[in-house]
Simulated assay, not measured.
Amino acid sequence: MKIRLPLPVISVLLASALLGACSPKYNWRDYASQDAPYRVMFPAKPASVTRTVDLDGMQVSMTMTAAEVDGATFAVGSAEAPDEEHARAAVPAMVRALTRNIGAVGERAAAHAESGGRSVSDIDVAGSSNGQPVRLVGHFEARGKRFYQVIVLGNTNAMPSEQVEQFLTSFTLR
């Protein structure tokens, strides 16, 4: 016995099968940190690592949570300083360290703002890593004794503006 399906039904079944086989490049997911009071949307499943970093002589244990899509890394780093003053000082120290790491040129930074125990900087810079041109877009913030870096780093072509903006603007402190 042969079953004949009408052409529109076959078309719908074929389209459904093709769409089901596709995997979106950006698979956005909500992430709530277990180590620090923040939430963010990552474009893929993130992984975390904690290590000691030196920020202008201040040794801190920083947890970095990151996901990679097509050669662009989307990451949030968080740490706690001994006090609010050290946390605020960590913001420009992180900016200097990251821009120095890529030999940044043409640095564009939003006005660094400080008020009420809060310090914020935003950057968009170009540089190189392993001889390849890269772009670094970041938001750096200190509140109380905690400080954060929210960055996207990669080849400019691997960093669509709307994806970078979605990641950066999704970062919220709880």
Rank of each mutant, 00 (worst) to 15 (best):
R4Y: 14
E80T: 15
M94G: 00
S119H: 09
Y31M: 00
I151R: 01
K2M: 12
S128V: 00
V49R: 15
L98W: 02
A158Q: 07
T169D: 07
A90P: 04
T65Y: 01
L136S: 09
D122W: 06
V105H: 10
Q149V: 12
H112M: 12
H86G: 08
K2C: 03
E114F: 02
A15I: 13
P160V: 08
K25L: 13
T156G: 08
G103P: 08
A126V: 09
D35E: 12
T156L: 00
Q149M: 13
L153T: 13
G116H: 04
V91D: 11
T52Y: 06
I151F: 01
Q163D: 08
A21M: 11
T50I: 05
V125D: 11
R174F: 09
S23L: 13
A15C: 07
G154D: 10
P37F: 06
S23Y: 11
P37N: 08
D124I: 10
Y31Q: 01
P8Y: 13
G57C: 10
E85N: 12
F42D: 01
M41D: 15
R39C: 06
Q132S: 13
M62G: 00
A66H: 12
A21Y: 09
R39G: 09
D124G: 10
G77R: 03
G117C: 11
L19M: 14
A75Q: 12
L5V: 15
I10T: 11
P6G: 10
K45W: 02
S33W: 00
A36K: 00
A79Q: 05
L153H: 07
D35R: 11
D70V: 06
R143W: 05
A142Q: 05
L13V: 15
V134C: 06
I151A: 09
E114T: 14
A142L: 02
Q132E: 13
M159Q: 14
V91M: 05
Y38H: 03
G20S: 14
V134P: 09
M41Q: 15
M159H: 11
V12C: 03
T73R: 05
G154F: 05
V164R: 02
L55P: 07
G116R: 05
E80L: 02
L98R: 07
R108H: 14
R108K: 15
P8K: 11
F140P: 04
G154S: 08
I102A: 05
E165P: 07
S11V: 15
P160Y: 00
L173C: 02
N101K: 13
R39F: 09
G116E: 08
V152C: 04
A142C: 01
Y148H: 05
